[in-house]
Write a protein that binds this DNA or RNA. Structure first.
Lengths: 134, 134
DNA sequence: CTTGACCCTATAGTTGCTACAGGCTGCATA
DNA sequence: TATGCAGCCTGTAGCAACTATAGGGTCAAG
């Protein structure tokens, strides 16, 4: 299987696959006579794993950790669980932050009366705390 | 006012201020005899504006746009409003994405029975679609 | 035998900063 | 006067996680 096919089956860009190889996330495959990368089922499995984890928002470092854990199949699942839980907490934090931000922005927009910039509440709200603006 | 003081009053790092100058977001200030940057009230106002907008999650490009709009005080506020609304839509999208992700991850974690990795539902769920894994 | 799709390497760009390295300036203190 | 130290200067490299480009080689079909 050459890189293009692997890319298509995993919905990954060719460059990204080469990038994963360069940073040591995906093992180097064998090469054909013409120096093309030649992938097998194990590569497909590993890349799928990486993509799913990335889709779930894990960072590359977290993915690396999960891969190491999954390679060591004798260990307890607890470590995997804790990586996932930590990630969940981060997501919750992000959602909370975005919601707060959304509220603020929404309020700002509600004040816009579509007048001239000089009366724009949005611009005004972004201005300096209390100083005189020339 | 020198750069350190401006940094403190706006809760910005010194390097960030120089960075904003380099990318043309903040105008170059005058210099003292010793070649130190010398800032005035206008700089403070502009940097405050930038920081507030950034805190609200606007990208630097959006900030640039808002700054340009606010400089042209005769124009209608409508353009500002639309930048803000576009940003709001982006935030809503992000929140929705994160919520979907949260749900999925939560489900995954719920299945973890703390057994050995070989039985780990998380690792399993991250694996390839349906193929035989060696 | 040429076209075109695919592959190769290596490097630079993206966003929004942050962190050096190596060197001045300016003020206080011994 | 010397010296120390905080603060400033420039320039460059680094972070995540790719993406894009340049400049080439390979392979199958027509």
């Amino acid at each position: 299987m050459q890189i293009g096919e692997l890319a298509r089956t995993t919905s990954t860009k060719v460059e990204t696959i080469r990038f994963y190889e360069k940073i040591g996330l995906l093992p180097e495959p064998g090469r054909t006579a013409g120096n093309y990368r030649d992938y097998g089922a194990a590569h497909l499995a590993r890349l799928s794993f990486i993509r799913r984890a990335r889709d779930l928002g894990f960072t590359l470092d977290q993915v690396r950790e999960l891969l190491a854990l999954s390679d060591d199949r004798s260990r307890s699942c607890t470590a995997v669980d804790s990586v996932a839980r930590a990630h969940l907490a981060q997501i919750d934090q992000k959602i909370a932050d975005l919601r707060a931000l959304r509220r603020e922005l929404d309020e700002l927009i509600g004040q816009c009366s579509q007048g001239a910039i000089s009366d724009c509440r949005i611009i005004e709200a972004l201005g300096p705390p209390s100083n005189a603006r020339h």
